[in-house]
């Protein structure tokens, strides 16, 4: 039994008493990265499935939100860097063992495709914006080119967007030093959550009933998968070794129990899935509320995961003291 553990002379900011290197910026980036992946996938699906009539929003207006979301996300990521002037260093080497390096290069591949995907929707979806682009040098040609390449771009977008969505989870799961993150389930979990967030956003934007129904159905399925993955994550950790057990205790009675279940799983997954099932059955219409809850849940998932991963550790230097000792002394 370790009864007392003191560390003299180590109080490094953001490292002690427990890691606090990443605050809101990284969760915002991971959330918007996943959302971007979801938007790109759905927009590409609408093109490939030729759904211009049934899903006009997804087909012609949705893609624009991908570069908006990703750019805000990248700004958050940039704000997190401690040495901002060196941001270009991500692109002076490729480190195959580092997921973050993969992420940086995936973004380089994603951006041009995402821009092409967006340009191809402007004339039909946002004519005013298209008019503005046409005034730029080569603007008309860029729009023509993107429209002609719409299907091949959509084909390429799907694997890259999936890579982007999975990457947002793998980035964390690759840290063997943080037991809460170190599980292969984070990649699929973040991908599915990104898709369901994008579905929720599409529900807010779409006007046609058949388009709304498609996304309600999609979201119910995706949230169902997400709940299953979260259950698997908890089972996976709670059947693990000491480090994993210690981390899963954070959500099973420990400090993060209330935030995890009451602030995330209940309002971010359970309530919206119930509302959307009601909606599918035609009992009532809640789409806006459910959508905002799903988006909130998507962010909370990243926020809590980033935070709990940092708290989970191999080295716990907290001063431990067993009050039982004193009791025994008095007997």
């Amino acid at each position: 039994m370790v009864e007392e553990l003191l560390v003299t002379a180590r109080h490094n900011p953001k490292v002690d008493p427990s890691l606090a290197i990443w605050s809101w910026e990284i969760p915002v980036y991971l959330f918007l990265g996943g959302l971007t992946a979801g938007i790109m996938c759905f927009a590409a699906y609408a093109v490939l499935a030729r759904k211009s009539d049934e899903m006009p929003f997804t087909h012609d207006r949705f893609a624009l939100w991908a570069p908006v979301a990703l750019s805000i996300g990248m700004t958050a990521l940039f704000l997190d860097l401690e040495y901002k002037l060196h941001v270009f260093r991500f692109y002076t080497s490729f480190e195959p063992a580092s997921p973050m390096s993969w992420g940086a290069w995936i973004l380089i591949l994603v951006y041009p495709l995402m821009i092409l995907q967006t340009l191809s929707t402007l004339r039909r979806g946002y004519p005013a914006l298209a008019g503005w682009v046409e005034k730029l040098p080569l603007g008309t040609r860029a729009l023509d080119l993107s429209e002609n390449a719409r299907r091949p771009v959509a084909v390429m977008v799907i694997p890259l967007a999936v890579a982007l969505g999975v990457y947002t989870g793998v980035l964390l799961s690759a840290f063997s030093a943080r037991p809460f993150w170190n599980t292969g389930l984070l990649g699929p979990l973040f991908l599915v959550s990104g898709l369901s967030s994008a579905g929720a956003l599409a529900l807010i934007g779409s006007r046609l009933d058949c388009e709304k129904h498609f996304f309600t159905r999609a979201d119910v399925t995706l949230i169902g998968i997400e709940l299953t993955l979260i259950a698997m994550l908890v089972i996976n950790l709670s059947t693990g070794a000491a480090q994993q057990l210690e981390t899963v205790n954070m959500v099973l009675g420990g400090d993060y129990t209330v935030p995890f279940w009451l602030w995330f799983v209940l309002p971010g997954l359970l309530i919206p899935i119930v509302l959307e099932i009601f909606e599918m059955r035609g009992i009532c219409r809640f789409s806006m509320v459910a959508s905002f809850l799903v988006l909130y849940g998507g962010f909370m998932l990243r926020y809590l995961t980033v935070e709990m991963g940092q708290v989970s550790t191999w080295t716990d230097y907290a001063v431990q003291f067993d009050p039982q000792l004193l009791l025994r002394l008095t007997h």
Binding site: W22, L81, E82, K84, R89, S98
Partner: peptide, 9 residues
Amino acid sequence: CTGCKACIA
């Protein structure tokens, strides 16, 4: 170094 803090984690 960009100060991304991946190494700290």
